[in-house]
Design a binder for these strands. Structure first.
Length: 337
DNA sequence: AAGGGGTACAACCGCCATCTA
DNA sequence: CTAGATGGCGGTTGTACCCCT
C-alpha cells in the first residue's frame, strides 16, 4: 500500500486553473479519454500533476456537470441522505445527477449546516440541540447576578428577550422530549422513557404563547391522554408564531428530524415541501411533526399537497414514515436499511 | 471610497482501498 | 504475498467576491 506521490513535485503548477489550461485538458480528454491520470499532464502538455487534472475534470470541466443553485428537491435529498449516511459525499452525489461530491460538500458546509444550527439542530446528529437549554439556567443566573451586583434592574427589553429565550428553550426541549418518547417502539408511554405526561403538560402550560395564541385546553388534554396531548402539541408546532422561532423565515422549507423506528436507524431528517407561498406568517404554513406522536402521517396538513407520494400510510402499522416511495425503492436505501 | 469581515467555492492535502506487477 | 502505483474520498485551506460600516 504505497503512499501516493504528492503533487508538490518540482515545477508543477498549483492554484487556480487558467482558461488555457482548462481548454488543453478538455481537448485532450475529448480526443483520447483521460486514461492514466498520471500520464495525462505530459501528454496534454499541462504543467500540473495528474491528481490536479483529475480533480479539475471531475469537479469542474466534465460536460455533464449541472451548475447553479441547488433546487429544493436536491436540498431535501441531501438532508435526507446525510441524516442516514453522514458525510458520504460521493454516495450522496450518486443520487444527484450532475452534482459533484465536492459541490455537495461545499453546499452542506456553507448553507445547510448553518441553517440547521440556526434552527437549533445539531447538524451531525440531526437532533435538536439541548446544550443551549442545559446551560440556560446558569446563563440566566449569571446575568441576574451581574445585574444584582451592579444594582441595575433589568430593563424591559432585556427582560423580554430573556423571557423569549426561556420560552424558546422550553419549546426546543419539549420537542426533544417528545422525540425521545417516540423513539420507544410500539408504545406512546412517555413514562417508559422517564418522561411523564404531566411533565410535558407542565412544560407546555408554562409557555405563554400557548395560552395566548392557541386553542389548547389543558384539562381536556389530561382527560384525553397522550395522543390528544400530542395532537395539541402538533398544533403548537404548526403555529406560525412557533415557526417563526423554530425556523428561519428565510428558509423556503421547514425542517424536522424524524425517527424511523422500523429501520432501526439514526433519525431521519428531511425538509418538507411547504405549501403555497412559503409564508411562515400564513396559517397554512406548517412544521411537520418530528415524531409519529406529534401528528398522524395521514394528516394532509403535513404532506405536500402537490405530491401525494410524499406520504405513506400510518406510522403505527405498516410503513414507517412519510417518505416518498422511491426512497425505499432506491438501492442505496435498501443497502442502508 | 476604503477596508474589514463574512461567505462561497475551487483547489489542495493526506489518508485509504484497490489494482497490478 | 508484497510493495508500489493509482484513483477516490473527506477534510481543510486559500482566495475572490460581496456587503456593511
Amino acid at each position: 500500500m504505497g503512499r501516493s506521490p504528492c503533487c508538490d513535485e518540482n515545477g508543477l503548477k498549483k492554484g487556480p486553473w487558467t482558461p488555457e489550461e482548462d481548454q488543453k485538458l478538455v481537448d485532450y480528454i475529448q480526443k483520447h479519454g483521460h486514461g492514466s491520470w498520471r500520464a495525462l499532464p505530459k501528454l496534454a502538455d499541462l504543467n500540473r500533476c495528474g491528481k490536479s487534472c483529475r480533480l479539475r475534470w471531475t469537479n469542474y470541466l466534465r460536460p455533464d456537470i449541472k451548475r447553479g443553485k441547488f433546487s429544493q428537491d436536491e436540498e431535501q435529498t441531501i438532508l435526507h441522505l446525510h441524516s442516514i449516511i453522514g458525510n458520504k459525499w460521493s454516495t450522496i452525489a450518486t443520487h444527484l445527477p450532475g452534482r459533484t461530491d465536492n459541490e455537495i460538500k461545499n453546499f452542506w458546509n456553507t448553507h445547510l449546516k448553518k441553517k440547521l444550527i440556526q434552527m437549533g439542530f445539531d447538524p451531525m446528529t440531526h437532533q435538536p440541540r439541548t446544550d443551549f437549554f442545559d446551560s440556560l439556567p446558569q446563563l440566566i443566573a449569571l446575568a441576574n447576578l451581574r445585574d444584582l451586583m451592579e444594582h441595575r434592574p433589568l430593563d424591559e427589553h432585556a427582560m423580554r428577550l430573556q423571557e423569549e429565550a426561556v420560552q424558546l428553550a422550553k419549546l426546543q426541549y419539549l420537542q426533544y422530549l417528545l422525540q425521545s418518547a417516540a423513539s420507544i417502539p410500539s408504545t406512546n408511554s412517555y413514562g417508559q422513557n422517564g418522561i411523564t405526561d404531566m411533565e410535558v403538560l407542565n412544560l407546555l402550560s408554562s409557555i405563554p404563547l400557548i395560552e395566548e395564541n392557541l386553542v389548547l385546553n389543558s384539562s381536556e388534554l389530561e382527560n384525553q391522554g397522550s395522543n390528544h396531548f400530542a395532537n395539541a402539541n402538533s398544533q403548537l408546532l404548526h403555529h406560525p408564531s412557533v415557526l417563526s422561532q423554530l425556523s428561519d423565515p428565510q428558509v423556503p422549507f421547514s425542517y424536522q428530524p424524524s425517527l424511523n423506528t422500523e429501520m432501526g436507524q439514526a433519525p431521519f431528517l428531511t425538509t418538507m415541501p411547504s405549501q403555497e407561498g412559503n409564508n411562515p406568517s400564513d396559517s397554512s404554513w406548517v412544521l411537520p411533526s418530528p415524531t409519529p406522536v406529534l401528528a398522524t402521517v395521514t394528516d394532509t396538513s403535513i404532506s405536500n399537497p402537490g405530491d401525494a407520494s410524499s406520504t405513506t400510510s400510518s406510522y403505527g402499522g405498516g410503513t414507517s414514515s412519510y417518505w416518498p416511495e422511491h426512497f425505499f425503492e432506491d438501492p442505496i436505501m435498501h443497502e442502508i436499511s
